[in-house]
């Protein structure tokens, strides 16, 4: 029995969402009295990997090979399955992401393991193994029991707030080799386009978002300015990305990215139920809208009835004055 956390690397470092997953694994390892092993695939410096110890890793397995530089869903899943078998893992943990979800899904099939995503808290072990997961895009929760020997959990952002240990608990990392089905490399990533230097939406703690009330792609500067001053990531409503005012990956909501930042500032967004579905896990919601009857105010913590083009510069100035 042990725990295996699938971590993701970005520029050689363990992603913040994966740090949360390691921390979750560590808490669960304490409950189960077992080890919390970590699997990292791709290029990373051993110093960076050793930092996994700060979040409660027992040991890091590192699978590094030129072939793994570009994320490959099939290959990564083969490696995860092999690592789970070798370490005798009974619980596999990952943070929800566009890579971890398909990778763990395939591993679930390979190991015939029950898989549950969007987990929001540590499991209840009093009667089997039961986790709470968010369903209906944040509108409700379901207590879900997993009956298989091996269990796979996808952790939602902010399920637990990790507390990095201060006494730099460095852990050893050992290289891990797995036989990967050569067929995996017949599928190729030919190009990756990624906004540079910006925290991706699912990981962002601060988000400034614009809707149709921004009136056009040329009027985004006030949002960009506030986001810049705050160090926030920008988002938008679905019509805004449908109209190509903003890139598609910024679209949040029921059919877009689901986010759980500490602060979500909605500018000129009416607050349709499908929009709320993607942002209702935010800790604090601020709404700026000219219409006092806009439904978004009902879901907000702070509201300003006013014109975004008048209000946003005031907020930006106040942030800069801090």
């Amino acid at each position: 029995m042990s725990i295996l956390v699938f971590v993701e690397l970005a520029d050689g470092e363990i992603k913040k969402s994966s740090q949360e997953a390691i921390y979750y694994g560590a808490q669960l390892a304490k409950m189960l009295g077992t080890e919390n092993n970590v699997l990292a695939i791709g290029e990373a410096g051993s110093d960076n990997l050793a930092l996994a110890g700060n979040f409660g890793a027992t040991k890091v397995l590192h699978a590094s090979d030129d072939k793994y530089k570009a994320a490959n869903i099939m290959a990564y899943s083969d490696i995860l399955t092999a690592a789970a078998k070798q370490t005798g893992a009974t619980v596999i943990i990952s943070a929800k992401s566009s890579l971890a979800d398909p990778v763990t899904a395939r591993t679930a099939a390979a190991l015939k393991a029950g898989i549950v995503g969007n987990v929001t808290a540590l499991p209840d072990l009093s009667n089997g193994f039961t986790v709470t997961r968010s369903i209906f895009t944040g509108k409700a929760f379901a207590q879900t029991s997993i009956s298989t020997d091996i269990k796979i959990l996808g952790i939602k952002k902010n399920a637990l707030s990790p507390v990095a240990s201060t006494d730099k608990a460095v852990v050893e990392s050992e290289s891990f080799h797995a036989d990967v089905n050569a067929k995996a490399f017949e599928s190729k990533v030919t190009e990756t386009v990624k906004a540079k230097g910006i925290i991706p939406l699912p990981e962002a703690d601060l988000v400034v978002s614009g809707g149709r009330g921004m009136k056009g792609p040329d009027h985004w500067q006030p949002i960009l300015d506030l986001a810049d001053a705050l160090g926030a990531t920008t988002a938008c409503s679905k019509p805004v990305s449908d109209l190509d005012w903003r890139p598609h990956h910024e679209h949040v909501g029921q059919t877009g990215v689901k986010i759980a930042p500490n602060l979500y500032i909605a500018c000129g967004i009416s607050g349709a139920i499908q929009h709320l579905a993607g942002v209702n896990s935010s800790k604090v919601i601020v709404v700026i809208n000219t219409d006092p009857e806009a439904p978004f105010f009902k879901a907000a913590d702070y509201g300003i009835v006013g014109d975004v083009f008048d209000v946003l510069p005031k907020l930006t100035a106040a942030v800069k004055a801090l």
């Binding site: 398909p102 899904a105 679930a108 898989i115």
Partner: peptide
């Protein structure tokens, strides 16, 4: 959009 699992395609692919 009810249970938001996003895993059925991966499981089927592996199967």
């Amino acid at each position: 959009t009810d249970y938001n699992s996003g895993v059925v395609h991966g499981i089927v692919g592996e199967m």
